[in-house]
Design a binder for these strands. Sequence first.
RNA 1: GCGGGGGUAGCUCAGUUGGUUAGAGCACCAGAUUGUGGCUCUGGGGGUCGCGGGUUCAAGUCCCGUUCCUCGCCCCA
Length: 412
Amino acid sequence: MAQFQPVRGTHDILPDDYARFRHVVDTARQAAQLFGYREMATPIFEFTDVFARSMGETSDAVSKEMYAINDRGGENLALRPEYTAGICRAFISNGLQQNVPFKAFAWGPMFRYERPQKGRQRQFHQIDVEVIGAAEPQADVEVIALGAEILRRLGILDKCTLELNTLGDPESRVGYRDALVKYFSGYVDQLSEDSRKRLEKNPLRILDSKDEGDRKLVANAPLIHDYLTPAASDFFKALQDGLAASDVPFTISPRLVRGLDYYTHTAFEFVTTHLGSQGAVIAGGRYDGLIEQLGGKPTPGIGWAGGIERLVLLSDPQPVAPRIVAIIPIGAAAEAEAVKLAGELRRADIAVELAYGGNVGKRFKRADKVGCTAAVVIGDDEIASGVVKLKDFKSGEEASVARAELLGKLKA
RNA sequence: GCGGGGGUAGCUCAGUUGGUUAGAGCACCAGAUUGUGGCUCUGGGGGUCGCGGGUUCAAGUCCCGUUCCUCGCCCCA
């Protein structure tokens, strides 16, 4: 029988990789905390409708990429393909309208049935930031600045550029959408096959087509900025002023759009050229209509998600310097003494590696291999005189240390 | 879902026009060194050549299918 493999598009995260993975999450959590965002989590699966109603029935993520199941009770459930819908549902379910603006940080696995590629998996992980209940552009500024700060702390901000656009308020968007449809309908025969479909489903998406023929048409297509209501235009202006004040550089990309239905006003992406065709590392926008679509009272919101695997790929490996001390007993009496000593040291927050067996040479070898910085050798002679030998692995020097002084020496 | 390239040891790879028991480096294990790691030296274990079928006297090598990875499209994080 063939050996088991991980399911297509899923990956084990082994200890070395996990250290890098955790570094991303820890860095993001710390930065989010500095901005006043509190960590939370929602279930990995929800009623399918939570996603269908928020993201849009016709979005790719819902219509062809969702892991949906009927459970034994007949409920129609789906593994979450993104975090925003779940957090908004939680906001409604828990009556958090009392706590606005509600500022949340979250991370966890997401699931999409897609064709795997570098930086694109079927189970992948995201960090996520949301502000619910704030209609002011200052919230957009803060959310984006937090994204930039996380990238800066990861040392990859200079590999990314922030692309910014507005989708306008619903009123602007309807007018613009009509204008786009009218424009592209005049060139249906010149549009790519994909874009002909988009013309019916989501004409905005034609704007970021990579097809050369499409791009020529797009170059002369009407711009959202000419269709903004004064309010939407002011909002976008305030956002730009705020980002400038926050020292967050950006470029305006009139063709940047979002695939999900719930976005309004602000749309942005931190993109990189270092990851092939998976360029977006952090992406998000404003979703003022979403809470209402999920059955809550009209409540504005803004947030973003970042792909942890992509952030790991982009950042340099972190030199991990764990301080671990090996205890190496020699002789039967010392074995018991070593266990006792290990307990004492661990209770004092010293990481201890204690091998299960093997002679002295093997234990030293093992200690070196797992990255110990020092070894405590204890044998019959040492027990008799109440000392241990403390060997520093870097210098190679070994010295006798009284048992009573060992902890102090290791803490230093 | 569509198109291109790949899959040989734990890892990175070599393998001639199809031709004996499929190799290297790193890693691993053991010994040199039964109270001392790293460096060195010696030895060792490890492969149904992704899987299934076909052609052939003979297949890691050629053909077909399949699966997984990868690059692009699509979509996005």
